[in-house]
Design a binder for these strands. Structure first.
Length: 661
DNA sequence: ATAGGGTTAG
């Protein structure tokens, strides 16, 4: 009793002193206050501190932080308690001192959180942060790890450009960030799919005199795999061994994944089998290795094999994780075996693994694809009952599901609801809606969505712009398309898809000069593909420029990789329109020689044209032939040729007719 | 650090 009275008296005295000190601090007084505060913090007397929070001045705070640098956890608790105080939130300097201490004490996660908070919630620019960190470093906390952490914080909030600026600014000041920071930056570029910039930055890094470490090599392999450059990836793999690195499981896994992405499952298998021997027993396959392989088989349309690998894993005593199950489940569902997917999911639940958002999203997606909207919404409510809440993926899946089933208005309603709830984070849902609105000839509706994105502060991405541009091009509103394009290039680089859309627009409106100069520009930028030339080819065919069409076709064939099935479809259609059926059929054989197979468009083209000119017998012969080649006729095919019903009434034929309708 | 689910071109 006596003690507590005494203590409270002392406390009052001190509080009064602090309030006084705020207005008029005699020399040395701040030192006394500092000591007093620090003692109270060390004893975790938080209530006391709450009372004098208004006395925490901007000059006092850094001193408190430095005083307590040996007890980072205590310091952090103090910061969290006074974080809302104006003097704290307004003083970037004190926060930076705290960050430096956290890095020094190897509390990297805390330092990262603090940095991200300052940049996101309080709006500090990365370069401002850098300045503040440097000036707080002057007073005794210099550490390059702080700068590494800043680069990492930038990449984690998606500010790749800022990360680079930080690295460059430091370079100008004679400070080299570590190879780890570069690796982090490079890895982020790959994650956001900017392989081009990845290589440019890698070259720059080497130019500055850095040497690759194990992680850098892994990233190089990954980048090459992403570009389906498997032989090059393998050669980097050998190069890293040659310079003395022992590849770890991550490197092997990237090769396995890369081989799968390049559709070379045999190689993927071989790598998995050889990990042990290649590493002389130091490295063995892990769950990720098998997950990559399983994913490869699922994407190749062989979920049964994926299921077998899953069983084999269990046999080997390796525990499949939720990603293993999620991948196989999605594999079954995407290959038309939703039931198998559900079965496997219950098996997973029996093994005490609870379905997560990715699994729900996958099921909802494939149910939507099957047209089972009510099944999808049932699953969605089941998911939410289980306290798993929709994310951006779910939103996109549902909105696209509704659109593709003809319920664009429903999709718009859902989208508005999501906006009302403030749940929109990325451009995906908008992109889907814009695309569907454009497709249903409602470009003005699409434009409204784009404008609303700006109002909401949601940044449209290249796909948003690309979709909008394509919409305008298809609606023959080239001026609007160019307007959007001009807006876009203020922030984003145009990509090949966008150039192709614009080219198609120019071709369709007959602007020969504009399309030629665009083609020249695309060639200069080395940005063109089969679609580019198919667009041009079909335009030549449409306006009857025979010579140009044939020349282009010949040149494309000479270039080898530049022809595909669509190229042949365009040419076959062209020849048919000219009445040259003989040649059209020859082109069909040529198509086979190139390993290309006809599709329903080839079918429709040939049969509708043949029907008018040739005998019934010939038409039926062509029909049988194309079906034997594996062509699956679609509704359009059926509608195009069903009128002369007499072409075939065999049971098989009627069966597919019925299947189509 | 590597593995699963959503957007764009003819």
């Amino acid at each position: 009793m006596f003690v507590s009275v005494f203590a409270s008296k002392r406390r009052n005295l001190l509080v009064r002193g602090l309030h006084f000190g705020k207005k008029f601090t005699p020399p040395g007084a701040e030192d006394i206050i500092l000591k007093a505060i620090c003692v109270n913090i060390s004893q975790k007397k938080w209530k006391f501190l709450d009372q004098l929070s208004s006395s925490l001045t901007t000059s006092l705070l850094p001193r408190i932080f430095r005083e307590l640098r040996t007890s980072p956890l205590l310091l952090l608790e103090f910061y969290q308690r006074v974080g809302g105080v104006e003097a704290v939130s307004c003083s970037l300097e004190s926060c930076c001192i705290l960050i430096c201490i956290m890095v020094e004490r190897k509390n990297f996660d805390v330092a990262l959180c603090l940095m991200k908070e300052l940049m996101i919630s309080r709006g500090y620019l990365p370069l401002e942060m850098l300045e503040a960190l440097i000036s707080s470093s002057d007073s005794g906390f210099p550490s390059s790890a702080v700068f590494d952490a800043l680069v990492r914080a930038c990449t984690q909030i998606g500010a790749a450009v800022d990360a680079y600026e930080v690295i460059m600014k430091l370079r100008m000041g004679g400070i080299q960030v570590s190879i780890h920071a570069w690796n982090n930056f490079l890895s982020h570029l790959l994650k956001i799919g900017d392989v081009g910039r990845f290589w440019a930055m890698y070259r720059e890094m080497i130019l500055y005199g850095y040497y690759e470490n194990l992680h850098t090599f892994n990233l190089l392999i990954y980048a090459l795999c992403k570009d389906c450059k498997l032989p090059e990836a393998l050669s980097v793999f050998y190069r890293m061994i040659k310079v003395g690195f022992c590849p770890n499981i991550v490197g092997y896994n990237m090769l396995v994944d890369g081989a799968c992405m390049a559709d070379d499952l045999d190689l993927a298998h071989k790598v998995v089998e050889k990990i042990e021997t290649m590493s002389r027993g130091y490295v063995s396959a892990n769950v990720v290795t098998f997950n990559c392989l399983i994913n490869g088989y699922c994407k190749k349309g062989n979920p049964e094999m994926a299921g077998d690998i899953l069983d084999k894993m269990i046999e080997m005593g390796m525990k499949p994780n939720i990603r293993t199950y999620a991948t196989v489940i999605d594999g079954y569902s995407r290959n038309g075996c939703l039931e198998e997917g559900f079965k496997l999911c219950s098996r997973m639940v029996e093994n005490n693994i609870v379905p997560n958002l990715a699994i729900y999203n996958s099921f909802i997606h494939w149910l939507c694809i099957e047209g089972d909207i009510s099944g999808a919404s049932l699953l969605l409510s089941n998911m939410m009952e289980n306290h798993i809440f929709p994310d951006q993926f779910t939103h996109s899946i549902i909105i696209k599901g509704l659109c593709r089933n003809g319920l664009v208005n429903e999709a718009l309603k859902v989208h508005n609801w999501i906006i009302d709830k403030n749940l929109v984070e990325d451009a995906f849902s908008n992109n889907i809606l814009i695309n569907y609105l454009c497709r249903s000839n409602n470009v003005s509706g699409a434009k409204q969505l784009l404008c609303r994105m700006f109002v909401q502060g949601l940044v449209p991405d290249v796909v948003t712009y690309g979709t909008m541009i394509d919409g305008y091009c298809k609606a023959s509103k080239m001026e609007s398309a160019i307007e959007v394009y001009t807006d876009m290039i203020k922030g984003d680089e145009p990509n090949l898809v966008i150039f192709n859309s614009i080219l198609d627009g120019f071709c369709k409106e007959g602007s020969t000069d504009l399309s030629s100069s665009l083609i020249e520009k695309m060639k200069r930028l080395n940005m063109f593909d089969t679609i580019t030339f198919n667009t041009l080819l079909s335009s030549y065919c449409r306006i009857g420029r025979f010579k140009e069409a044939f020349d282009l076709f010949m040149n494309m064939r000479r270039a080898g990789l530049l022809v595909n099935r669509v190229t042949y479809n365009i040419m076959i259609n062209f020849l048919c329109k000219l009445g040259l059926f003989e040649q059209a059929t020859q082109l069909l054989s040529l198509m086979f020689c190139q390993g290309l197979t006809p599709d329903s468009v080839t079918y429709t083209t040939l049969l509708t044209n043949l029907r008018n000119k040739s005998s019934c017998e010939e038409v039926v012969k062509m029909h049988d032939f194309l079906l034997l080649q594996g062509v699956i006729p679609d509704r359009q095919t059926y509608e195009a040729i069903v009128r002369p019903v007499d072409i075939d009434t065999s049971p098989e034929f009627m069966e597919w007719v019925n299947d189509c309708v």
